[in-house]
């Protein structure tokens, strides 16, 4: 029980030692991670969903669901791995 108490106090002492205001700046340099959309929204498809609404009409084909026979044709071809073989649908 005393050990837990010591550990808890050590953990909080560590947090308090970080000091006010230092957190955000340090975190920025801490670790690369994957970072994006820092205020800059590019044109094109990926604008982080900030322009979902418009009062203009969208034109598309009106295919019946039954006619749907496409195969994926994007960058998924570049993803490889042993688990794909298990998941792949049978060739027909």
């Amino acid at each position: 029980m005393k050990e837990t108490k010591n550990l808890m106090n050590a953990a909080l002492a560590g947090v308090l030692a970080l000091g006010l205001g230092a957190i955000a700046d340090q975190a920025a340099a801490a670790k690369p991670g994957f970072e994006k959309c820092a205020g800059v929204v590019k044109s094109g498809m990926n604008d982080c969903g900030t322009s979902l609404h418009a009062c203009a009409g969208q034109a598309t084909a009106d295919n019946n669901a039954e006619e749907w026979i496409y195969v994926p044709a994007g960058t998924c071809g570049k993803i490889a791995g042993s688990s794909l073989k298990e998941a792949a649908p049978k060739e027909s």
Partner: peptide, 16 residues
């Protein structure tokens, strides 16, 4: 401004 594009609770769009 298209109202519904700013219905988020926070974030970049509202800050802009």
């Amino acid at each position: 401004v298209l109202s519904e594009n700013y219905y988020a609770a926070g974030g970049t769009a509202l800050a802009n």
